[in-house]
């Protein structure tokens, strides 16, 4: 009896040890007998597929603000730079005095880039440009809490040709006045 058990264990062990071989053994049988060790399913390999249905999402944010553009000139930058040049002081001055007169208004500064850089870096660069302009405005006395920033990188070009003239217009900080809607 004891020998029988040992024999049984032996059989199980040996067949387990040889399993790999079984999986790749030439099979003369017409079909359905073989299993692949990686996709052990009965009969044949059933091809699984996780169906990708449409993912739907809703934009829940409602536009509670009105946007006013074009009141102030854009501030332009050199390629891959985010320092605000001195020639833009008059623009910054007029923005800051307007903000002082219109105490309830909020200002959004959009940072933009030309198309030559890569997407993510341009978004960071646009962000840095918006921040540089914000910092300047704060130094002119505009409260930091009144200024929002958003970077659009190269995603919203003003001019769409591929030349320096066009690119220089796109490397900009753009001012948008945000006022509460529904007044």
């Amino acid at each position: 009896m004891r020998r029988f058990w040992i024999f049984l264990v032996l059989i199980v062990f040996v067949s387990y040890g040889c399993q790999q071989r079984v999986a790749t053994k030439p099979d003369g049988q017409p079909s359905g007998q073989q299993q692949d060790s990686s996709q052990a399913q009965k009969g044949s390999d059933k091809i699984p597929e996780q169906k990708v249905a449409s993912v739907e999402s809703k934009d829940l944010s409602t536009k509670a603000v009105q946007e006013k553009e074009g009141m102030f000139k854009d501030i332009l930058f050199d390629f891959d730079k985010y320092d605000v040049k001195d020639i833009y002081k008059p623009v910054l001055q007029s923005v800051s005095s307007w903000m002082t007169k219109n105490g309830s208004a909020k200002l959004s500064i959009e940072g933009h880039c030309d198309e030559r850089g890569t997407n993510e870096y341009n978004l960071a660069l646009g962000d840095r440009r918006a921040k540089a302009v914000k910092d300047s405005l704060v130094s002119f006395g505009v409260p930091s809490s009144k200024i929002d920033m958003i970077s659009y990188g190269e995603e919203k070009p003003l001019c769409k040709e591929q030349n320096e003239d066009c690119w220089s217009k796109n490397r900009r900080a753009h001012f948008v006045i945000l006022e509460k809607a529904g007044k």
């Binding site: 030439p26 359905g32 073989q34 044949s44 059933k46 091809i47």
Partner: peptide, 21 residues
């Protein structure tokens, strides 16, 4: 010699996935 012989099954609209397998 044979290296392998296998059977594959899939719904008809999964022909490409079956082929890739």
């Amino acid at each position: 010699k044979e290296i392998f012989k296998k059977q594959y099954q899939a719904e008809k609209d999964l022909l490409r996935q079956l082929s890739h397998n």
